[in-house]
Computed example of a mutant assay.
Amino acid sequence: MLADGERSVRLLCGNVDADAAVAGPWGGGEGDGGGGGGGIAVPIRGVNAGIMDEQVLSLVFRALNWDPQALCVVARVSRRLRAVAERVLWRELCVSRAPRMVAALSGTNEAVARPGRIGGGWPALAKLLFFCCGAAGAAVPGHFAPVSRFSKTSGRSFLSRRCAGDLLYVSDPCEHAVAGAADDVGAYRGVFRGFMRSLTRAFLVAHRAPLEPRVRCPYCGARVWSMTAAGLAPRSACRRLGANEGRLQYFVCVSGHLHGSCWLARLSSSEGEHGADSDSDDKEDDGPVKL
């Protein structure tokens, strides 16, 4: 008998009967073979039928505009749905919402249906696109971000001169008011292309930078380096974020995900009008990634 959650998900397709769509490991339904049900099913090992079919699920979520919260719910229904989500759906969501960013990160010339590998995996990238990890030091919890904007121009501001050849996307800071504090906290995140071959990783490894003992990547769970402790946090990062000097920290995990926080400086009206960076390269990035 189907669990209520799985029955609801499978009924997303109106032309698929919930009970008939239950496929066993060979692809046939529960009533197939030796029981006198409807038609005759040919068992095909490793093939999912009905709503469990990858193409059907892709069509369902395309109709839902690749809603990340709905996909999170579906991925928790069963191990089989989670496997399909990890193999196909998270990738398709990323391609749909941030095609230029995905193309750049995966090394393809354009956003195609099957781009190359992504460091840390597609579920981690999808989480990074839509989830602000907050700021633990300021007791700011993580949350889904309604709108996020990622830019490789911002990413260049986070690279020291010795690592200027790397490609890094960084989001605009997600601003949070903190009770009892005069300034707001900005939380931001980002991702490197090909981090295993990056100049940043090479520097960290060559200089034996220690991994943080108590901090983990909020997107893939891997261990992280502190860029401020390693001396790889340039002053341009503070300027790009509009942060107070010396009140910024960020981490990069072994998979190439970046996360950090800063205390945002309060700007005068003249600074607000003239102090923001503007770079024509920003037009090469995707527009805001909306939840």
Rank of each mutant, 00 (worst) to 15 (best):
A276F: 10
S255M: 12
E273F: 07
S148N: 15
A276Q: 14
D172G: 15
E54N: 08
N244G: 13
L64K: 12
H207D: 11
G24A: 13
R62T: 14
W122G: 00
S106K: 06
A18V: 06
Y169F: 15
E86F: 08
F61V: 03
R117K: 06
S226F: 04
V191C: 10
V88T: 15
G246K: 12
L125H: 01
E284Y: 14
A222H: 08
D4W: 14
G27A: 07
R239M: 05
R216L: 13
G190R: 03
G221A: 13
P213F: 07
G107T: 11
E245Y: 06
V140N: 02
G14P: 06
A179T: 10
R189M: 06
C163D: 07
R235T: 12
A75V: 02
L168F: 10
R100M: 13
P141N: 12
W263T: 07
S280Q: 06
L2R: 08
V178K: 08
A276G: 07
G33H: 07
W122L: 02
P234G: 15
L241S: 15
G186I: 02
W122R: 01
R45V: 09
A181S: 08
G275W: 03
F131D: 01
A23G: 11
R10C: 08
G38Y: 10
F203A: 13
A70Y: 01
R82K: 14
H176N: 13
E92K: 11
W263I: 07
A113P: 02
C238K: 12
A202E: 05
F131E: 01
L81T: 08
Y219V: 01
A206R: 05
T228G: 10
W263C: 14
E110R: 11
S270N: 15
L128C: 06
A265D: 15
M1G: 14
